[in-house]
Computed example of a mutant assay.
Amino acid sequence: MEKKIESINIMQKFSLFEKQWTPHIIGELNGQYVKLCKLKDDFVWHSHENEDELFMVFKGTLLMDFRDGRTVEVKEGEILIVPKGVEHRPHTNGELVFNLLFEPKETLHTGHVESEKTVKQLDWI
């Protein structure tokens, strides 16, 4: 079966869901999912043992804390790549942030940490 090749309107896809910190899949390539997520307030400290993680901000400002005390600000139109094994905590300054992620299919968004925010079954939109 041949896959349908068409463009994806990312902002239209963001309009299809409201739930925060719950990734939604919009595509896949080379064993990776392309995910959209709305972020607000604090997430959990976590790391990904075997995978780098790419964050691309479409709306708002994402703040990424690291255990060495640094916080990196990621603004609209910017990306941040967190290397595998680096513990991090995404959060916002109270605004709603629209974020796109590239992650291997098997990657849980909370890494090795299980919390009330862990989503194991992701929906395609």
Rank of each mutant, 00 (worst) to 15 (best):
2 E>M: 04
2 E>V: 03
3 K>M: 10
3 K>D: 13
4 K>Y: 10
4 K>Q: 15
5 I>N: 02
9 N>L: 10
9 N>V: 05
9 N>M: 03
13 K>R: 12
13 K>L: 03
14 F>Y: 13
14 F>N: 12
15 S>G: 05
19 K>D: 15
22 T>H: 14
22 T>D: 13
24 H>T: 05
25 I>V: 15
25 I>S: 02
26 I>W: 01
28 E>P: 05
29 L>C: 13
29 L>W: 12
30 N>L: 11
30 N>I: 01
32 Q>K: 12
33 Y>R: 04
35 K>S: 11
35 K>R: 15
48 H>Q: 11
50 N>T: 15
50 N>W: 08
52 D>A: 07
52 D>Y: 09
53 E>M: 07
55 F>V: 07
55 F>R: 05
56 M>Y: 15
56 M>W: 13
57 V>W: 09
57 V>Y: 08
58 F>A: 00
58 F>T: 01
58 F>C: 00
64 M>C: 13
64 M>I: 14
66 F>N: 04
67 R>Y: 01
68 D>V: 10
69 G>F: 02
78 E>R: 07
78 E>I: 03
78 E>P: 08
81 I>Q: 03
81 I>R: 10
84 K>P: 00
85 G>Y: 09
86 V>M: 13
86 V>R: 09
87 E>D: 08
88 H>C: 04
89 R>H: 05
89 R>D: 00
90 P>A: 06
91 H>T: 10
92 T>S: 15
93 N>E: 14
94 G>Q: 10
95 E>F: 00
96 L>E: 15
101 L>D: 12
101 L>E: 14
103 E>N: 07
104 P>I: 06
104 P>G: 01
105 K>H: 09
105 K>A: 10
106 E>A: 09
107 T>M: 12
107 T>H: 00
107 T>C: 12
109 H>I: 08
111 G>A: 05
111 G>T: 05
114 E>S: 02
114 E>W: 00
117 K>T: 01
117 K>D: 02
118 T>H: 01
119 V>M: 08
119 V>F: 03
119 V>C: 06
122 L>S: 01
125 I>W: 01
